[in-house]
Design a protein around this nucleic acid. Structure first.
Lengths: 234, 234
DNA sequence: TGTATTTTATTTGTCGACAAGAAAAATACA
DNA sequence: TGTATTTTTCTTGTCGACAAATAAAATACA
């Protein structure tokens, strides 16, 4: 019965290949398993996934569309660099979107949204207890993305998702450099945010979202400035 | 010397085809020359541009990434519909981004940004004088996009560009239905916005940006509600 | 030895062909 | 006539191959 398989069975549904390599590359990039600037080889990926270059290229085009990779015409394609010089524009956008999405969630959420948000909240707390930074960072992003979804403004949500993605890379970078952790405080703030959303207290949600965002930004900037000093000392 | 051309000369540079198709489809979609919901045929496009389906598909993948077209797996791809039921989320996002980008332009613009902005402002005024709605709508979007660029926050700029694109379709729709025009008032408001930016008056720029956005939204909503009544009357 | 030019190798963009999947048409059956 | 099933047609997703563009290596020349 062991078919000698001369007519090749792809063992994979038509159309699923693109998503598979897209998802994998995306995760690897956001977890910094693929370093910023590292090259991406189409042929290598095609061999690894046992498919032709066509679906690989489609996945790459999509990733490029989201800014996760960069393609130089007729030359190599590589993982996008983190723009450290303009981090402040990132923080500005992040803080505003934290505010807006949390506020809108308080205003527009439906009962069925809360279990989802609470689920990520618990996952996050568990990851923090386990000192699992990778999971912690990912579930933190998922938590806030779920809040944004509950706010029901797809335009804000899509920008916020992009910012959270970029934030995953930045947090990953600093927390892996310094073996540091999100403080317990962030878990408490998450709980407070959920409470404000559930109570439909819009102004309080806005205030908490802003404060939470600024606390995270301050945390990263503290590590960042320490890193600066390190560079100068060398 | 008239080469009989048996070896086929593509007469077009390698890599330019994708951009050509992308740009054309994008313009046609935003000008409503391709109606929302209308199907897009890969083979037809390939014949029209005299290239294979591969570069056509790449252009389509990029357009899908920006939400301008929608692709059903293994089935047809079509121009995205305008989501009239959730127009309010669009307006919310638009007003906020008008505010933020205008404010940031007042804060961060450089001298060389102003001529660009003024250029679009004049093009817009000229198009209004000519009663050329198509050009008017496009240059209005370009004017505000230029202001956003001067604000130098790429995250806000990219969301704002997407909103302005969608706005082009919506404005196009209503202004072509009602043979109406942007009032002269908008030209004056543009001038006031430029003045506030140049004076680096951040609060005034914020205020003007918000007021301008709300005026446009009100204009569209007025037409929209009239349209509603029309539907009911039928 | 160092620079300029040619040759080779590698990688990307495009092509035509083919097969899987879905829609449309044709046929069978009540 | 109306519904179910099969057949056909059409479109999309994937493939392997080739050609253009670039990078790397080799050679020529000072």
């Amino acid at each position: 019965m062991t078919d000698t398989d001369s007519h090749s069975l792809p063992e994979r549904k038509r159309g699923s290949g693109v998503k598979m390599v897209y998802d994998l590359l995306r995760d690897q990039i956001l977890d910094l398993k693929l370093a910023p600037g590292s090259p991406i080889d189409e042929v290598q990926l095609a061999e690894r996934f046992k498919m032709s270059r066509t679906p690989i290229r489609e996945a790459l085009v999509r990733l490029a569309g989201e800014g996760l990779i960069e393609t130089l015409p007729n030359r190599s394609t590589m993982v996008s660099n983190i723009d450290f010089l303009n981090l402040h524009t990132f923080f500005d956008a992040l803080v505003l979107m934290y505010r807006v999405t949390t506020r809108l969630a308080a205003q527009n959420h439906r009962p069925e949204d809360l279990p989802v948000i609470r689920g990520f909240h618990e996952d996050y707390a568990a990851a923090l207890a386990m000192r699992d930074n990778l999971t912690m960072i990912a579930t933190n992003a998922a938590f806030h993305a779920a809040i944004a979804e509950a706010g029901r403004n797809p335009y804000f949500t899509s920008l916020f998702r992009r910012l959270l993605d970029e934030g995953r890379r930045i947090l990953q970078l600093y927390y892996q450099s310094y073996e540091e952790q999100f403080p317990q405080r962030f878990v408490d703030e998450h709980a407070a945010i959920i409470a404000a959303i559930e109570a439909r207290d819009i102004e309080e949600a806005d205030r908490l979202g802003k404060a939470h965002a600024e606390a995270i930004v301050a945390q990263v900037q503290k590590l960042f400035s320490r890193n600066d000093r390190l560079d100068i000392a060398l």
